[in-house]
Structures are given as structure tokens and as C-alpha cells.
Design a binder for these strands. Structure first.
Length: 225
DNA sequence: AAACGCTCCAACCGCGGTCCT
DNA sequence: AAGGACCGCGGTTGGAGCGTT
């Protein structure tokens, strides 16, 4: 009751920043009264975490950041705060807004194109192969974790040799954009799970985007940690 | 110049989880 | 164990700003 709502003024911002710099923010509910602000604690917390924090990154999202959002969203869905942990200086709110205004449409269009491609040509490949696009950042994460010596270009050759006869991926040996990524995922699966599980989950049409969200979240978000 | 429609983003709301008593 | 207080998350919205008619 009696609390102010709506856009923050420069003066309110100044009061909040000064207070937090002096005393920190242990108790958001008590903070506005202590600082002399006619706002609820929730509003103060939001203003600070999404706008006033000194480590917030300003400016347009880079290609790498966009790629990270798209790839992570494919595994873990709308877990914006989890996605934000992989983008230093970006807030969950900002990422959520950016997804809805810029990326969602683009991803939907790409997905529709991939779907129409499948209908025209048919496919034995893992469906995700047509839409995944891993950045070197992820490849490096795996390289760092697992200590493998490979690069994105020759990885498929090495890996398909190792897997021959164990997992029927013959149909993926022909050149296609996603094969390196699929092989990478298979390798991660092999590293992280029992062989039996891998065999049951990597054959046939497997929609990674709708399964094992927590597993993939751990693989990617915690990669390198 | 005014009216209208659209986009974008800061801010709000409700809910679920955690902590504390 | 129960219940209240608090926090953080994700969905949603209000309105400023911009382009178009």
C-alpha cells in the first residue's frame, strides 16, 4: 500500500545504487524502507539485477551470444536464468526479451525449412542434425574437459572409425552439415552414460530437444566447470 | 501534422522453492 | 511437521518510441 509503481526515475536509481554500494542487499524487503524509497523490495531487486548492477553488459548481442542462446534453448527450453549463467553480463530478463523479439521467429523459420527438407528428401539421420550449429566455444569446452586432440573438421573421421559396428550411423557418413555435431554428441553420450543406454538412445529418430533436458543442460551449461 | 499500428523492453505479477521459527 | 516470510524465476503487460499512412 502506498508503494510507487512504474518506471524508475534517475533519482530513485541514484538512491538505490548509493544504498547498495554502502550496505549491500541482504534483505530486499527491508531495503526500500532503509534506503528511503517508496518501492516494494521486489521492485528494487528487479531494478538492481536487471538494470543497475555494475557488471551488466550493454549493447547489441553478438553472433556468439545469439548462438549460445539458440543452442542452449534447444536443450533446456525457457530456463532463462540458466542460459544467463553462460552469458556474463546479460540478465535473464534481457535474454528472454531478446529471444521473444529476435531469435524465436528465426529459429521457427529454420525449423520449418528443415522440416520441409525432410519431407522432400526423407531422412534416416537424427532430426536435430539439420538445425544444430555448435560454435567453437562448445567444441573447445569438450576438448578441454575430455582432453581430446581433435578439431571440428577431422573429428567425424576419427570418431566414426571408433564407433563403426557399434552404432549404425552409416547413413551419416555422407557429407552433411550436422554430422560432426552428431558425432560429438555421440561421444559425449558415450563418455557420460553406459554403452547400453547410448545404444538405445542414439539409434533411429531421436529428438534431443524434447528429451533429457536436464542431462543436456549439465553437459553444456556445466561444461568446463 | 495527426492518427494509427507495430515493436521492443522495462517492469509487474503470480507461483514455486527455500529458509527460518 | 507446519506455516509464514522471503527470494527468484518465467510469463505477461504497459507504454515509449518509431515507422507508416
Amino acid at each position: 500500500m502506498g508503494m510507487k509503481k512504474g518506471a524508475w526515475t534517475a533519482e530513485e536509481d541514484h538512491i538505490l545504487i548509493s544504498f547498495i554500494q554502502k550496505y549491500g542487499h541482504q534483505n530486499w524487503r527491508a531495503l526500500p524502507k532503509q534506503a528511503g524509497l517508496l518501492r516494494c523490495g521486489k521492485s528494487c531487486r528487479l531494478r538492481w539485477t536487471n538494470y543497475l548492477r555494475p557488471d551488466i553488459k550493454r549493447g547489441n548481442f553478438t553472433k556468439e551470444e545469439e548462438e549460445t542462446i539458440i543452442n542452449l534453448h534447444q536443450f533446456i527450453g525457457n530456463r532463462w536464468s540458466a542460459i544467463a549463467t553462460r552469458l556474463p553480463g546479460r540478465t535473464d530478463n534481457e535474454i528472454k526479451n531478446y529471444w521473444h523479439t529476435h531469435l524465436k521467429k528465426r529459429v521457427q523459420e529454420n525449423s520449418a525449412m528443415a522440416s520441409s527438407k525432410r519431407q522432400r528428401f526423407g531422412s534416416n539421420n537424427i532430426r536435430i542434425s539439420e538445425t544444430w550449429n555448435f560454435s567453437n566455444q562448445y567444441l573447445n569446452n569438450f576438448k578441454n574437459i575430455n582432453g581430446y586432440c581433435y578439431n571440428a573438421n577431422n573429428f567425424h573421421t576419427n570418431w566414426s572409425g571408433e564407433l563403426a559396428g557399434e552404432i549404425d550411423h552409416d547413413d551419416r557418413k555422407s557429407s552433411s552439415d550436422g554430422q560432426d555435431q552428431i558425432c560429438l554428441m555421440n561421444k559425449v553420450l558415450m563418455e557420460s552414460r553406459s554403452r547400453a543406454e547410448v545404444l538405445s538412445t542414439t539409434t533411429g529418430e531421436y529428438d534431443f530437444s524434447n528429451n533429457d533436458a536436464d542431462f543436456w543442460y549439465n553437459v553444456f551449461v556445466n561444461a568446463g566447470n
